[in-house]
Nucleic acid binder design. Sequence first.
DNA 1: CTGTTAGCGCCTTCAA
DNA 2: TTGAAGGCGCTAACAG
Lengths: 387, 387
Amino acid sequence: MGSRNRDIQWSAMVRRREDGAEHRPSGTPPPKPRRRPTIQDLARAAATSPSTASRALSGNGYVAADVRVRVLEAAERIGYVPDINARTLRNRTSRAVGVLISDLRNPFYATLAAGIEQRLRSAGYHVIVVNNDGEEEAEVEGARTFLAVRVSAAIVTPVSERAVRMLMDDGVPVVQADRMVDGLTSDGVLVDNVQGARRITEHLIGLGHTRIALLIDETDWTTGAGRLDGYRAALRAAGLPMDPALVVPTRFQPEAAREAVTALLARRPDVTELFAATNMLAEGAFQALQRGGRRVPEEISLVAFDDVPWMSMVSPGVTTVDQHTDDLGRTCAQLVVDRIAGSSAGHTTVKYIEPSIIIRGSTGPPRGSTVPAARPEPGPLTTSPPS
Amino acid sequence: MGSRNRDIQWSAMVRRREDGAEHRPSGTPPPKPRRRPTIQDLARAAATSPSTASRALSGNGYVAADVRVRVLEAAERIGYVPDINARTLRNRTSRAVGVLISDLRNPFYATLAAGIEQRLRSAGYHVIVVNNDGEEEAEVEGARTFLAVRVSAAIVTPVSERAVRMLMDDGVPVVQADRMVDGLTSDGVLVDNVQGARRITEHLIGLGHTRIALLIDETDWTTGAGRLDGYRAALRAAGLPMDPALVVPTRFQPEAAREAVTALLARRPDVTELFAATNMLAEGAFQALQRGGRRVPEEISLVAFDDVPWMSMVSPGVTTVDQHTDDLGRTCAQLVVDRIAGSSAGHTTVKYIEPSIIIRGSTGPPRGSTVPAARPEPGPLTTSPPS
DNA sequence: CTGTTAGCGCCTTCAA
DNA sequence: TTGAAGGCGCTAACAG
């Protein structure tokens, strides 16, 4: 909070409530919150007992119809809201689900979280979100929080194996999202990275590219490893040479990717196509091409993995692999719901999201290609689906 | 979940844990989670009483140094994790904060949530996120959830006044973010919309624009009203005519904005500059210009309010008002922390985030302008700060 | 069908 | 400095 901020005590935009009783001289301790009505109060208001009130509210057990109505009305009248903490304590199970992700600022995770939250909310759960910023410590801390609040399940995009293991060791059902810790048996929802990478690479090969550089930040997880595998499989299937120097390692930040691409282009001017393995890397690659003044796709083509909004806004739009992130999130949530309901007891389920390819303007035949472009070069954005 | 998904029971990528005891024939009910150690167990393990163990952990009250050590060690050893529900029930106060926002898929809200979560987590709170999708019902439902879990405070980007009122009526401290419900006295963090809109409009006027259209989706909240005011104030100060037909109402979706812009351009070919009041509207406006084949900024300039990633990726980059959304989020969180600590007792605080202007390539002198461009037209992106 | 009882796990008196 | 006791609000047994 720098000097950008300016404090004021009162805003002209906000009118004082016309309620003199609200006035409290500064310095007085804050009013202790009015005690919330408990089920005792509700029972009294409905002229019955707490247990009957409880039954009326929950629908478990017998309650005379008229009594139920009385209780419901009373609840409405006195503004009764059941205490979830007490309920959780008593029931030893909550309607809370922990969501442990890496970076809400990254549209991939934001969309994932949105899909999860949407589905879980409609199933009557609420969501505790912890961002771990890619840090193992924060991730473990998040897992500890989930244990402490007795979440009934957790959805994790793992950074390390510790958090997932902690949760599983404590009997918390875990759904791993996007990637899975090797050797831990939990439910999971993964993207078919191999297939996605393979199909988009095939698209490039079909256009005539033979020197396709892969920009990638990790191959330890199924995400990176799968994308690398798919890329290789496509090359192999097409009988193309596998030049190890064209697999370009980088750190995950756009800046790192930008530098890596700039260096690559200087080193290997023969490269006609760049495949960025994540949306962040694609961002850096795109910037490197733009700053380097490379014409896309005439001089060099670009494809990405993971469709994020800017890719359909730029011109040319970026051809990419759509992971259906929203669907990924909803599927995770559904797995959680099924697991809690016990309908998936006895086995773990790993679902795969089948990605699809979105072809935009950033891919074309390689420069010097004698193959006429089969696909007419579209005007900006016209091949893009609506974002 | 459509045909894109394919279920499998087992993934080659995930190895079975080498733990035969884990095997459970399908159909067997899930193992009841091993009872978690309670403070009783901890006391036993540390050869003391629960009360002493409690004091040792919390630091409240006297505990002999050696006993404290014993308790802490035992806690570590047996994997004791205090039950937050029990603690909340007993203490009548939790470390949970509710965050009620409109749309996690919109980078504005995602960034806001990220800033909030980050700051609150480091202050020892955890966050319950509810997305309301702009729906009053969902918002009220979210507020009810917050009441039920006894959050110690809530941060809300209000959609209606009901949710905020419900929370406040129950004594839950509320920080309203980005916009405030008129007539409710809570803490809040707002952006100085008037100033931001005014300054960016002045920038345009300085370039020589006189027919500046404002694309706006609402003027009921301080956000829209403020941006409209700032726009008008700048025109007025410059002695420019105020053409009501240049204030173009639209719904908030990019598609709506796209159509509105297309219609406007047909109707008013004399417009030289478009000011989109939100990032969503800017998206639609940008697309409309691109599809319409308008050269930006030569034929028409574009500015936005709220900086989101695509604006620095496209060429030309979009000149916009940076709301410092991350800071906005952190400031909300800080207000919550202060409020809970009681350090702000006795008054409400409304903070203002002072936005700043990011000038990119989408703004230039109006067509036919005789004023030479003072600012050399930069190459793509070179005026953009790193995204 | 209803009400009484007990206890979920924790923390804070209060008495020792 | 420690431990015993009680109760936060809720619901599932169980007895009426």
